[in-house]
Design a binder for these strands. Structure first.
Lengths: 244, 244
DNA sequence: CATTCGACTGAATAGTTGTTCATTCATTGA
DNA sequence: TCAATGAATGAACAACTATTCAGTCGAATG
């Protein structure tokens, strides 16, 4: 649907430093979506209310029902915004990689762990929505479309590489599904344990996966002492699970 | 001391239809936790209220604040219940596998995709809580402890296998973190796309991962046309909350 | 400048949900 | 059989939140 950056409808030219008291609707919508992302990322979906989003955006309560018809639509549009962004990135990676399946797979890994795609804010929003997606048809549709844009691409690439690269024993669907799952799991790690998982480590794990699956086309990353886990975050202390 | 006759009579009568009007607190707590799991699995965390849980359990509103002090504690205890169950299973797998790292890793994969561990109900609850875990210190602690029980075990096993099995080029930490992430991602697939992912396929993907990483110790599963969706319905039937 | 348009506000409203507690009633022991 | 106990109830209450809308005000227009 509406791609975020392209359609700014500026009536008059009006460079601004102080927040304008009135703005073009499309501009406000964008502003509110970004405020929503920050709210969900900082407080969770449960604590995200119309009031907190409006405050985060520096605007009044009523603004959300003015520009989106309801809170529900605000959330839907926020999810759609992220999904569009992701699918656009997939298409761009597809075009950049050309015909080579090796370059294509590498581009997909690179894409998934690029800062602007998997920033902590955005990861937080993804997982917040994933927790609810089964129960909201709209969420389901949006998420499913995003998933497919990724998986279709990876499946094609794996199948092509199996064929061209002569890997008769490799099941391309298995490798593709595995890479997809691995990526989701690494995203989760990035989100909940930023001290023991980094975007760079995630990339190495993914490339290592591809190197193991297609050893003649990818090189396994050299063994690196990655920062060991002794300086874990406070929330990773073992502590008293069983204590009641 | 002989039990009073009336007591025995009652115990026998209590069987199916009408639940006893009063029960031991521990029994009620368990009953309410199971009702919570079903509620979260069927309606999501957002729609899970004290009223819906009580109705699901066939009891009255006030019961939850009677047995748990608040809704918050009910949710916390539910999460703790699942975490305890998981960690107990890890310990059991550890003991069953003995000293062999190959058997140990196989047992971990088997464990993660066992029906009573990753039933759809329970997966739904895990992801519901994961969406909120960053914002609730208690959730964080419980989840982190569960994660560690898994990861510590897998790290040890990979390290041992690298050493004993002579894999100088394999980074055991990388493989371990990868397996952990892969499992989380497969859980997500099992939850949100049950018709393209089954517990059996998830097992094959995981074993394939291990076979690629440790080719002399695991055999890659034979290429299989995956079974189609309807065949799997029975396999992923919901509702084994009470199975321990 | 006067006028119009519509973006924006925020108090009021309606609906929902967690919690409390006086009361009910099943169970148990004497 | 008859208290005594405490598990269970559910209506009342308090707190919160999404939504509405009549009014405000900035900006474009003539």
């Amino acid at each position: 649907m509406a791609l975020p950056e392209s359609n700014l409808k500026h009536k008059g030219r009006r460079s601004l430093k102080a927040p304008r008291r009135t703005a073009a609707p499309e501009e406000r919508r964008q502003q509110l979506i970004e405020a929503t992302i920050r709210c969900v990322a900082n407080q969770g979906l449960a604590e995200t209310t119309i009031a907190t989003v409006a405050r985060e955006a520096g605007l009044s309560q009523g603004i959300i029902n003015l520009h989106f018809r309801s809170k529900d639509r605000l959330l839907t549009e926020t999810l759609r915004y992220l999904a569009d962004e992701y699918r656009t990135a997939v298409r761009a990676a597809e075009e950049a990689a050309g015909d080579s399946p090796v370059a294509g797979l590498q581009a997909m890994v690179e894409l998934d762990f690029r800062r602007n795609i998997c920033s902590r804010d955005k990861l937080a929003v993804w997982f917040a929505f994933w927790g609810e997606r089964r129960f909201r048809p709209t969420y389901r549709r949006i998420c499913a479309a995003r998933d497919r844009s990724y998986e279709d691409r990876v499946r094609v690439l794996c199948a092509k590489l199996c064929e061209q690269g002569d890997y008769p024993d490799v099941d391309p669907a298995l490798v593709a599904d595995g890479l997809s799952a691995l990526t989701d799991g690494l995203w989760l790690d990035l989100l909940v344990r930023p001290d023991s998982m980094s975007r760079d480590l995630a990339r190495r794990i993914s490339m290592s996966y591809l190197a193991d699956a297609f050893p003649r086309h990818f090189e396994r990353p050299a063994i690196a002492r990655h920062v060991s886990a002794n300086h874990r975050a406070a929330d990773d202390r073992p502590l008293d699970v069983s204590a009641r």
